[in-house]
Amino acid sequence: MPKTIQFIKSAVLAKDYPVSRKAEVAIAGRSNAGKSSFINALAKNKVAKVSSTPGKTRLLNFFDMEDSYNLVDMPGYGFAARSGDEMKEWHMMIETYLMTRENLCGLLLIMDIRRAWTQDEELLKEFSDRRGFPMAVVLTKADKLSRSQMLQAVAKIKKTSGLSAVFPVSSLKKEGQNAVEDYMYENWVKDL
């Protein structure tokens, strides 16, 4: 099982992606969902930049999971302060990566546990269904809710999304990340 995560490189264009035959897991989510904090909690180290301003990640950031597989942190969606041209470039960058990366084996959708499933998340799920790769949901900031509220939130997302792989995590308490990592490895990465 991977123990260390190292930053490989950032890219926008397909020609700049790292050359790799290893399985890749993409990470998507809203700009303020806690993607970087989740990656850092997985790494048990600060490998991904965490910003107090949502929408700072504007590139595809590739991370090596100790020679086992790669994680790819995609820029967050739902941040309104971007210009129309920036949004078009963002859509093109994300779509190109998701449509053309042959070693992409799954998509982790990172959501704040206090948010509802919206049309944005549904579109991402429909896209992953069409593309034929599996998706799991990671509900961050689980420490903000009581245990019963957390279980209700997980059940609600499972029902609304139709996905069974839904994981509550807390970067603050360092809880849940191992379950996500084990799931990715066992179900998406191991047999590739």
Rank of each mutant, 00 (worst) to 15 (best):
K9A: 12
N40S: 03
N32P: 12
Y97V: 02
E175V: 05
D73N: 13
I5S: 00
I94Q: 09
V166N: 06
Q152A: 11
A33K: 07
S31P: 07
A33G: 03
D112I: 07
L108E: 07
R30M: 02
L71S: 05
E89H: 13
M184K: 05
Y17E: 02
A81W: 14
T57W: 14
K141W: 00
K88Q: 11
D143Q: 03
N45S: 14
D143Y: 01
M74K: 14
T96P: 12
M92H: 14
V12L: 10
N40R: 04
A48P: 01
Q177D: 03
S37F: 10
V166E: 07
S128D: 06
K88A: 13
K190D: 09
P75D: 10
D73K: 02
D182F: 10
K9I: 07
T100I: 08
P18C: 13
D112C: 08
K159Q: 02
T100Y: 15
S161N: 08
T118W: 01
F7V: 12
A11W: 06
N61F: 03
N187Q: 14
S83A: 05
R115D: 06
G106P: 03
A14C: 07
E66I: 07
R58T: 04
V50F: 13
G78Y: 08
D73Y: 13
N70C: 14
A48Y: 01
G55C: 13
V138N: 00
Y77K: 03
R115S: 13
F79T: 11
C105N: 05
I110T: 10
S83K: 06
Y97R: 04
Y17K: 10
R82E: 08
E122A: 15
A33C: 14
D73E: 15
M93S: 01
E186D: 11
L13I: 09
V50I: 08
F7A: 10
L13N: 09
E86S: 15
K159R: 02
A142I: 00
K9V: 09
A153G: 10
G132L: 01
R147S: 06
W117T: 05
S128H: 02
N103H: 00
S31Y: 04
E66M: 13
S171Q: 03
I39K: 00
L60V: 01
